[in-house]
């Protein structure tokens, strides 16, 4: 038996909206630790890793480890029928092929349930080694969204360079070049507005803006985003999910031919 109840149901809606552009079908792995998902995009360039810890749920029952295979476009259609303030319960029987979504309005005057057919998805699980990153940037997620959106008007790729001067986002395209530099800025009374740059070594990497823009669909999950970079590793773009876990996007760099 699998049954979990999430009071802040909007979190689930936001997570699915953030990943459904990159991933069509995915397994949610359920264990006593919580719910997790790992999936690659169809081009095998980006990897998504989601964790929602069990202690973030009001009720969490998972009698044995199960993988629940689902089509994210269908999950999105179903979650769109839930109100933003609704409490969401997910239920599945052992060996069943249905997942039940139950949506309760905050004052309990509307309760809906929808059963969704599950899928058998063969997915590759990748080992992500713990890494010490050469540069870690924490910045307002809205600012990162704006940078990615603005640069896509000029070019298709972004070079992210971290030096002791700050972090520079650069692009070049047919109409010209663009650079945006963000410096460290610690706003003590508003920590969410801070930009904090931790750098061990200067690092500069090139990425496809199309993927970066897709990652920023997670902006509403968190007021800040953490970007971790090392010269020989995929970038990690992480949105924390309040008191529950994280949504991480890994993106392989583009390299000189």
């Amino acid at each position: 038996m699998f049954e979990v109840r999430l009071v802040q149901g909007s979190l689930l809606k936001k997570v699915v909206e953030a990943i459904r552009e990159l991933v069509t079908d995915a397994n949610i792995d359920c264990s006593s630790t919580g719910l997790s998902l790992q999936a690659m995009d169809s081009s095998h360039v980006a990897l998504i890793a989601l964790l929602l810890r069990s202690d973030g749920f009001e009720h969490f029952r998972c009698d044995r480890n199960v993988s629940i295979g689902m089509n994210l476009a269908n999950v999105s259609k179903i979650l769109r029928t839930a109100g933003n303030d609704d409490i969401i319960t997910l239920k599945a029987d052992d060996d069943g092929d249905l997942l039940t979504f139950m949506f309760e309005s905050p004052n309990q005057d509307r309760i809906s349930d929808i059963e969704m057919k599950l899928m058998d998805i063969k997915s590759e699980h990748l080992g992500i080694p713990d890494a010490e990153y050469e540069a870690v940037i924490k910045m307002p997620s809205q600012e990162f969204l704006r940078i990615c959106k603005d640069l896509s008007n000029i070019g298709d790729t972004v070079v992210i360079s971290v030096t002791k001067e700050g972090v520079k986002f650069s692009t070049r395209g047919d109409i010209g070049n663009a650079n945006i530099v963000c410096r460290q800025n610690t706003t003590l009374d508003k920590p969410d507005d801070s930009t904090i740059i931790q750098m061990k070594e200067p690092v500069s990497l090139t990425f496809a803006l199309r993927y970066m823009n897709s990652f920023t669909k997670a902006t509403s999950l968190s007021s800040s985003v953490t970007i971790s970079m090392s010269s020989d590793l995929p970038i990690v773009v992480e949105y924390k999910i309040a008191d529950m876990g994280y949504l991480r996007f890994y993106l392989a760099p583009k390299i000189e031919d």
Partner: peptide, 14 residues
């Protein structure tokens, strides 16, 4: 001039 690396170049299959 740039080629897109795959994520599988960096992470191993479990």
């Amino acid at each position: 001039p740039c080629i897109q690396k795959k994520i599988l170049n960096y992470f191993s299959r479990d």
